[in-house]
Simulated scan of single mutants.
Amino acid sequence: MAENALDRITGIAHIVWDWNGTLLDDNHATLAAINKVCAEFGRPPVGLEYWRSIFRRPLLSCYEELLGRRFADHEWDHLNEAYDRQYSAMLPSCGLAEGVPDVLHEWSTAGGTQSLLSMAAHQHLVPLVSERGLDGHFTRVDGRRFDNGQDSKTEHLLAHLAEQEVDPDTVVLIGDIDDDAYAAREAGAHAILVSTGMMSEERLRATGHPVAPTPAAAVAALTC
């Protein structure tokens, strides 16, 4: 998809960035962690395109589809431990997405502001952003600070914007899954989805929101 194929979104003053699969190129680490889960539960390994075809929130139902059964409580804890252990081991091999951090510099130079909101645990996210030298680009960095039964980014986005006193109508959330689009819609913000992460382009387009091939292409469609 060419950058100029995206309709321009005007009046944007602030970008809320997603992390995994958007600014961080971690698909290989995610897939390795998924296949560690598969091994722990006796399922053959899966490929990236299969995972991108079923991944969704809430995560519990997604993993039930992956493994073909429901979980006992202790099994869900075991799954998360197995995933986190493998993913953490792979993190040093994860670089930044194509065009990052240049696109962050360019947006700031154009007069925009930006922040980071991820569903990764807050205490794990903050040092990862700092280690990659990105924290100075953001007015605020939030990981998942609280849990809710819906397992969605919506409430986290509402809190993230409220803390910054940002008008949602001037905000675009750039993320890589349909939950990012739903959260933006509920918050009254715009959304652009990048096809570099954990959902297939077909599923992203089904949200009705624009889809870009890279973070840089997403930002190229914005006008302050």
Rank of each mutant, 00 (worst) to 15 (best):
R70I: 00
A32N: 14
Y83D: 07
I15D: 06
W17A: 06
A82C: 15
V100Q: 03
Q114W: 12
L24C: 11
E106F: 01
E3M: 09
D7C: 02
I54S: 10
W76A: 07
N35W: 13
E3Q: 05
S108G: 14
A89M: 13
F55D: 06
I15R: 07
L23I: 02
S88P: 00
R56Y: 05
A39G: 13
H105K: 04
W19C: 06
P127L: 04
A32C: 14
R132H: 10
K36V: 10
E49Y: 01
L66A: 01
T22K: 00
L96F: 15
I15A: 11
A39W: 13
A82G: 11
E106L: 08
A2H: 11
E75I: 07
T30C: 13
P101S: 09
L67M: 04
D73C: 00
T10M: 02
A72K: 07
R70M: 00
A72T: 07
H78E: 06
R132F: 13
D18F: 04
L116F: 10
R57H: 14
F41I: 00
A97P: 01
Y50Q: 12
E64S: 00
L31K: 09
G111L: 14
G42I: 06
V16D: 08
S115P: 00
F41W: 03
R8S: 09
G133C: 12
L96S: 13
G95R: 14
A89E: 14
Y50P: 01
F55K: 07
C94F: 11
D102L: 08
E49P: 00
E49L: 08
